[in-house]
C-alpha cells in the first residue's frame, strides 16, 4: 500500500515538474522567439541573383531552397569561389571547388542587342528573368544595361542572333588598384 503510494507520489511529483518545466519552456519559446531569416533567405542573400539557371534550377531562389534541402553548394558559376566560400561558412560545410558541369567562372558580362538587326520578336523579352529588356512587338528592343545580370538566357531564343554578351567595361571608379595588371600599350 505504502509502496504504491510512494510510486504514485513520485509519479505525481515528476508529472507536476514536467508540466511546470514544459510550460516554462513553452512560454520561453514564445516569449524569447528569435526572429531570424529563414535559411533559404540567408542563402538567397548570398547568391548573385543572376537568375541564369546554370545551377539547373529556374532561378536563384529555387537553388537556395535546394541548398537548404541539402543540394551541393558549388553549382553557381556566376558567384564563383567567393560565393561558395560564403555558402560554406553559412552551411557549416567544406568549401568545394566550382562544379565544372555547371560552367566556368567568367568575367561579368551584359547583353547587348545590335539594334539594327533586331526584328522586334519579343522572344528575348520573354526569356529575360529580370525584365531587363525593353521593347515591344515589332519595335526595336534594347537591354537596360544596369539591370542586366548577364545570365545569357536571351541569347539562345533570338531568331536573328542579334544579342551579344559583352564584358562589362572597366572604369576608373570600379578599378581595383591592380597596378601590375595595367596593359602597356602605345597610344598615338
Amino acid at each position: 500500500m505504502s509502496l504504491s503510494l510512494a510510486i504514485l507520489t513520485a509519479l505525481l511529483a515528476l508529472g507536476i515538474l514536467a508540466i511546470i518545466f514544459g510550460s516554462i519552456l513553452g512560454f520561453a519559446a514564445i516569449k524569447f522567439k528569435v526572429e531570424s531569416d529563414p535559411l533559404v533567405d540567408q542563402i538567397d542573400e548570398i547568391l548573385p541573383q543572376t537568375q541564369c539557371g546554370q545551377c539547373g534550377y529556374p532561378g536563384c531562389k529555387p537553388y537556395a531552397e535546394a541548398i537548404a534541402n541539402g543540394d551541393e553548394i558549388n553549382k553557381c558559376p556566376p558567384g564563383g569561389e567567393a560565393t561558395i566560400k560564403k555558402l560554406a561558412d553559412l552551411m557549416g560545410v567544406e568549401a568545394k571547388s566550382l562544379d565544372a558541369a555547371h560552367g566556368q567562372e567568367d568575367v561579368k558580362k551584359v547583353a547587348y542587342i545590335r539594334e539594327d538587326e533586331c526584328i522586334g520578336c519579343t522572344k528575348c523579352i520573354q526569356a529575360c528573368p529580370v525584365d531587363a529588356i525593353l521593347g515591344a512587338a515589332k519595335q526595336m528592343h534594347t537591354v537596360i544595361k544596369d539591370e542586366c545580370t548577364g545570365c545569357d538566357l536571351c541569347v539562345e531564343p533570338c531568331p536573328v542572333d542579334c544579342i551579344d554578351m559583352v564584358p562589362v567595361e572597366n572604369n576608373t571608379a570600379s578599378w581595383r588598384w591592380k597596378l601590375d595588371a595595367i596593359p602597356i600599350k602605345q597610344v598615338n
Binding site: 538567397d44 547568391l47 548573385p48 541573383q49 543572376t50 537568375q51 532561378g59 536563384c60 531562389k61 528573368p129 529580370v130 525584365d131 531587363a132 544596369d146 539591370e147 545580370t149 571608379a173 570600379s174 578599378w175 581595383r176 588598384w177
Partner: peptide, 21 residues
C-alpha cells in the same frame, strides 16, 4: 575598391532579386 564593388554588386543583386520576384 573591393568594398565599394562588393556593395555595388550587392545592390545589383538585390535589385535583380526584386525584379525576378
Amino acid at each position: 575598391a573591393d568594398i565599394r564593388n562588393e556593395l555595388d554588386e550587392k545592390q545589383q543583386a538585390d535589385k535583380a532579386r526584386e525584379r525576378f520576384e
